[in-house]
Design a protein around this nucleic acid. Structure first.
Lengths: 301, 301
DNA sequence: AATAGCATTCAACATTGTGGAATATCTGGA
DNA sequence: TCCAGATATTCCACAATGTTGAATGCTATT
């Protein structure tokens, strides 16, 4: 809409973990805009505190105000605080790193981690860590995509980049994987993003039945073999269920009706929108032995 | 500079901890702009993921991208990770809540807390907590102001709002307090922001001698009496010194010269800029008994 | 059925950002 | 010391851009 604003977005997006500092000229080259234009915008951002500038090197960095408002944004979401105890409990139960992720509202091909608890005891929301990952290659991302089929097409809009030899880059393959995820209730990442790293995750629903996030664990492949996965799956599913529940998501009567003005409605878990038909919650129940076996067989190929 | 951008700033600033959600009309009224103008801007922000919108209530919230880039900003500053172990150590030593704060680059009348460790064991960077406080009423803020006299005038630019009956609202009073702070090396907050809450803090210098942050503790007044303050002061000062040191700040030769191309320069701690004269580091040394006594006397009035 | 409050769309207008050219400042090399 | 080639910054005329009143379409409330 507003073109000048989009230019600002482009400029801010130039600042990444890999390139956190920019000189004016480099920045102008990078975004392909005239230097004076970039200068004007950056000076304005500087005045507002949105970027910072080293007084000598003249290099720009992202500023304090961004952090301040960002903190507010995450606080607003509330989900993080809500989920925290369950996330920690999950870590304690399985000992591995636990992540809480949401889909990037702009581009669902990316997942953004809003919390993380390290395998050992480093219990801190370390936002210095990786915040962004391709949703179609990680467990949390796939857990969310699987239960929001209408969003998947947006992921397919662009070609799926392969990160490892295991990455599912063909839409058909990914679709099959998502279907499987829907069946068993949890998703699996078999080293599709980083080699040697595997993970599993389950979706979290809000009080209206929408998929809003996912919790998952990740670990070195050798430590998370098929048998372990089978054993841990119920725990991950239970965690996702508990978080959903504290977010107000209840499948039969009770809390749920409070949010729909006396009308008790159930939710179509697959579409993620309130629907008429009543359905059993795959999230809250444990997976059948059948699907667990199916998983193990698939993991071998 | 760019007026349209400033409008955007105004809009984003409307979102606070107290008013985290806005409808379009309310927002337009609040910032006193025509509705279509606000609409255009917000839609653009929405597309960029900088704000979010509840699909039904149509209310705007701050979005994920803000959080993402904010995380990057704080990570970039690095100071937080650097200081973390010392911050934690300080908490362990005195058992009280420890905060790490920096001055708002735009308006030094405010301090922004970039880290916090709770008195007990809740060791997490809880950015859901208070992030912003008036610098002239809190220990961390006054520690930074005291050692940057040129900045203080900017704080005086606007009248100092009183938060409690102890708040130093008269410039002369504050100046006296800052002078005292310079002498003893650490600042004190005697319930000047929140009643019943007192605190003390010391400034942190970077490798060029600039004051970049402050560490401090805060506690209920009854728990942090004059005698306790006297006992704890050296610990706080030592912590600030250690953080400064790991940031590359060294007062005699050594690391410091590495940053000034072979020229060994010392730093004028008060002005915060490299200077010719050599001075003893108030930050790294313990306060004399005299100043500690002076403090106790003052605390009585 | 009617009102009042929302969000949204449109298009004509002039305010606003744009960017080429000029200047100032810095850095490293000869 | 001086120059060459970077950099950041300032200026101003132009037109592209954001602006906003008026009109429309919603959704709730009375």
């Amino acid at each position: 809409m507003l073109r000048s604003l989009k230019k600002v977005f482009l400029l801010i997006d130039a600042f990444t973990a890999e390139a956190p500092e920019w000189t004016l000229a480099d920045l102008a080259r990078h975004v392909d805009m005239p230097k004076p234009t970039v200068h004007h915008i950056m000076i304005t951002l500087l005045e507002g505190g949105w970027v910072d500038r080293h007084p000598e090197s003249k290099k720009f960095r992202l500023g304090v105000r961004l952090w301040e408002k960002g903190s507010l944004a995450i606080k607003q979401m509330g989900l993080r605080d809500l989920a925290r105890p369950h996330v920690e409990a999950l870590m304690r139960e399985c000992g591995e790193t636990v992540r809480l992720g949401i889909l990037d509202t702009v581009d669902p091909a990316w997942v953004i981690y809003i919390d993380r608890v390290e395998g050992r005891q480093t219990v801190r929301a370390d936002n210095a860590a990786t915040v962004r990952a391709p949703s179609y290659c990680v467990a949390t991302g796939k857990a969310m995509l699987a239960f929001q089929p209408d969003i998947v097409s947006r992921v397919f809009a662009r070609p799926l980049r392969g990160y490892t030899e295991n990455t599912l880059t063909k839409p058909a393959d990914l679709d099959r994987d998502l279907a499987l995820t829907r069946k068993r209730g949890y998703s699996l990442n078999r080293s599709e993003f980083h080699g040697e790293v595997v993970g599993m995750a389950a979706p979290i629903h809000d009080h209206e039945g929408r998929v809003v996030a996912a919790v998952g664990i990740s670990a070195p492949a050798y430590r998370l073999g098929p048998e372990v996965i089978k054993r841990i799956a119920p725990v991950v599913l239970a965690t996702a269920g508990e978080i959903s529940r504290s977010a107000g998501f209840v499948t039969q009567g009770g809390t749920y009706e409070a949010f729909t003005k006396g009308t008790v409605r159930s939710v179509d878990l697959v579409r993620g929108v309130p629907a008429v038909r009543k359905c059993a919650s795959a999230t809250l129940s444990e997976p059948s032995d059948r699907s667990a076996r199916g998983l193990r067989a698939r993991g071998r190929q």
